[in-house]
């Protein structure tokens, strides 16, 4: 009887341990979110979204050019990454069971673990070292290289969610295989693919390291792909490591803006993937 009580005690002990683990993860998260919001919110004015950064000590100013720069470079990245990433994902889902498929899949898995700073060096080599200047294009290429592998894998997974019964149904109607893939399978998976794209875009928008020496930074508005360009993340970094209190304040506000942007993209992505394929035959 005593033995049983001991064993039950052990059981309870480990349950508590797992609860402590949860607290160890949730408390820092809560602290982080709360501080970004509470420190960031006071600086959140309309001007913060529309103005250029001001020098130290000068009031006002914002990160308008950095927001535009982030969108601009993520746009350039999507231009390269979406066709290749989605195309590779379709390949993996449709023809990925063979030898080439498993090689491509393994490559995608391993590439998605390559540190983003290393990808920055690659983009530097591909673009900056040839053009002899930092540019939005180089930043975009870096982000694209980061997006492709994960986009390929998530596209594959969303396409594979489409029940094979739909493929059978279409083929049994005498529809050729390629039309079946394009107009039945992909048509059904399109919501999932949009989700994958939004998640990839959200991740790219939050990247800093590969932009430090590809896009560099810029104190002014820029929409020339061949010029250095500001981004929200690099701006947060520069503000944060500066010794000035009013720049620290701007770092928090810019972080709040970035968090809202990334959070919004994630929310939309979740919403879309939840509504997809509900009730579809298995």
């Amino acid at each position: 009887m005593n033995r049983l009580r001991w064993r039950k005690g052990v059981d309870r002990f480990w349950t508590v341990v797992s609860g402590v683990a949860v607290l160890a993860a949730v408390i820092p998260l809560a602290s982080l979110l709360w501080l970004v919001i509470s420190h960031g919110a006071p600086g959140l004015t309309a001007g913060f979204f529309t103005s250029l950064p001001t020098p130290v000590g000068e009031p006002g100013g914002g990160v308008g050019n950095a927001i535009v720069g982030t969108f601009f470079m993520v746009g350039i990245a999507s231009l390269f990454a979406l066709p290749v990433g989605i195309g590779a994902g379709i390949f993996l889902a449709e023809k990925g069971d063979g030898k080439l498929g498993s090689i491509v899949r393994f490559t995608a898995e391993v590439l998605s673990g390559v540190p983003s700073i290393v990808i920055g060096i690659v983009a530097y080599g591909l673009v900056v070292s040839h053009m002899k200047r930092f540019s939005a294009l180089a930043g975009g290429v870096a982000l694209a290289l980061l997006m492709v592998p994960s986009l390929a894998r998530s596209t594959e997974e969303f396409i594979r969610l489409v029940p094979s019964a739909l493929r059978e149904a279409s083929l049994a109607l005498g529809v050729p295989a390629w039309k079946t893939s394009l107009r039945v399978i992909l048509r059904t998976a399109v919501g999932g693919i949009v989700t994958a794209v939004l998640l990839a875009v959200a991740r790219a928008a939050g990247e800093t390291a590969p932009l430090l020496f590809t896009a560099l930074n810029n104190q002014y508005w820029n929409t020339d792909p061949f010029q250095p360009t500001a981004s929200l993340t690099v701006q947060i970094y520069n503000y944060a490591i500066s010794p000035y209190d009013d720049w620290h304040q701007k770092a928090w506000t810019a972080a709040l803006v970035l968090l809202l942007l990334v959070g919004l993209l994630n929310l939309v992505a979740r919403f879309l993937s939840r509504n997809r394929l509900q009730g579809a035959p298995r």
């Binding site: 059978e168 149904a169 005498g174 579809a280 035959p281």
Partner: peptide, 15 residues
């Protein structure tokens, strides 16, 4: 397959 149609075990309309 255009001459020989097929109906499957589980209904599989295009969602």
């Amino acid at each position: 397959r255009r001459r020989v149609g097929m109906v499957f075990q589980r209904p599989n309309p295009f969602p």
